[in-house]
Amino acid sequence: MQNVKIVVTGPFNAGKTEFIRSVSEIDVVSTERKITAEAEKIKSSTTVAMDFGRITVDDELVLYLFGTPGQKRFDFMWEILSEGMLGFIVMVDSAHPETFREARSILETFHAYAPTPYVVAANKQDCDDAWEAEDLRLALRLDPQVKLLPCVASQKETVKTILLELLYSILETIETPTD
């Protein structure tokens, strides 16, 4: 049996757990805890170690989706989680521009850990306050070749699209001749 993993990362409250929950065939194994910091009481609980969901491909292959903790004080987990990943997804809360800078910093950190392909998911596109994906690209200073995809993490189809786009990028990377 071969296990492969994709990491889902992003700032606090970006929708990582929801994203994994939408496609996982098992109940997401979550390490959520009640929020303690007053400033972060946007939601009642948060991921403190990691979430993971599973998608069985066949008898020999299983894909695990690992969600990183969003709160900065758990960033020591990021390096551990990034080890051996196929690629990663950076979730951005499109309706909260105050998190864009952190999203950019997380993206750079993960890319430094492992230069694997990644895509950026502009989550919460169903919110009235959501920034359009292309505005987000400018805000996050993403290169035009970086895939930035609109997302509603609770909708399975958009989650599938994002996973597929990441896998296409991984495939392209494999097919690209190396020196």
Binding site: Q2, L61, L63, L86, K160, L171
Partner: peptide, 16 residues
């Protein structure tokens, strides 16, 4: 092998 693995993942995600 790597390509085949990713292709299998793609097929599986499409079928979800």
């Amino acid at each position: 092998e790597h390509k085949s693995l990713v292709q299998r993942l793609i097929n599986r995600i499409r079928s979800l």
